[in-house]
Every structure is written in structure tokens, then in C-alpha cells.
């Protein structure tokens, strides 16, 4: 690899760390308001737990509030709001990747028994196995 003749030069790894780092220092009030909103959401989620709704609706409500709370903590307390694009990316990466695990696992459990409902698959596998085994036993017994 031939090297250029440029001299000196700030070590700026392909422009990937943005030089002069302007540090944002949020005010105490900013953190205080964040805390207040989180507290309101906490009260809301506990209250929602006592609403007379179906379990699945309850899960949706609780998770929605939890996600909002988590996003607030990530953006305000963890200062992602003031972070570089790359920090945004990392902050989302783990949660995004979890979707793969959840999606596949749930796809399995939701659809696992479905195909057995088609004609010819009325019995569950375990019933088939038991009937076949007992059938064989009967045949042997008749010999």
C-alpha cells in the first residue's frame, strides 16, 4: 500500500469520530421533568393493571407503556438524544435483534398445531402414536 505525501493531519479515522466534541450537558430541570413523566407513566401502568380488560389487551397496554418509559430513559437519561447517529444505531440494535428471536419462537408456537386440523390430520400426533402402538400390540397378541 503506497502512502501519500500528505504531512501531519489529525488522526481522524476515515471521518468516523467527529472531531471537536461538543458535549451537551442537560440541565437539572431536564432530568427532573423526565423523572416526572416517568412517574406519571408508572402510576398509569399500575392503574391500567386494574382495568377490566382482556388479558391480551392488558399485555398490549402494559407493554406499550413500558416501551414508552424505556424510550424516555434511553433518550433522556442515557443521553442518546444528544448522541451521534452511531449511538442511535447501537441503542436500537439489541431491541431490533430480539424481534427475530420473538417472531420465530412465537411463529412456531402459534402455528405448531394448525396443520393437524386439515383433513387426515384430525388426531394429534400423540394420539396417532398411541393408537398405532396399541394396534401393534393387539396384532401381536392375536398371533
Amino acid at each position: 500500500m503506497a502512502k501519500s505525501h500528505s504531512t501531519g493531519g489529525h488522526h481522524d479515522a476515515a471521518g468516523h469520530h467527529d472531531g471537536g466534541h461538543a458535549h451537551v450537558i442537560p440541565s437539572v430541570g431536564f432530568y427532573f421533568w423526565t423523572l416526572l413523566v416517568l412517574m406519571v407513566l408508572l402510576v398509569l401502568t399500575v392503574w391500567a393493571g386494574y382495568w377490566k380488560v382482556s388479558v391480551s389487551a392488558g399485555i398490549v397496554i402494559a407493554l406499550t407503556i413500558a416501551v414508552v418509559k424505556a424510550v424516555i430513559v434511553i433518550s433522556n437519561f442515557m443521553n442518546v438524544k444528544f448522541g451521534t447517529k452511531q449511538v442511535w444505531l447501537w441503542a436500537g440494535a439489541g431491541f431490533f435483534w430480539l424481534i427475530i428471536l420473538f417472531a420465530y419462537a412465537f411463529a412456531d408456537y402459534v402455528s405448531r398445531d394448525h396443520w393437524m386440523k386439515y383433513p387426515g390430520w384430525e388426531q394429534t400426533i400423540s394420539e396417532r402414536v398411541t393408537s398405532e402402538v396399541s394396534g401393534e400390540a393387539k396384532e401381536e397378541g392375536s398371533h
Partner: peptide
Amino acid sequence: VGLYWHLVDIVWIFLFPLLYLVGGH
């Protein structure tokens, strides 16, 4: 360490409703 501590908080934010609240009272 601050980031770590907020993460611990976030985990609890999900644990609390999923264990204590969901499912009706």
C-alpha cells in the same frame, strides 16, 4: 457506569408490568 445503571432500570421497567400487573386483578 451511568449507562449500565439506566439499563438495569430499563430491564425492571419491563419486568414489573409483565410479572406483577398483566393478567388482571
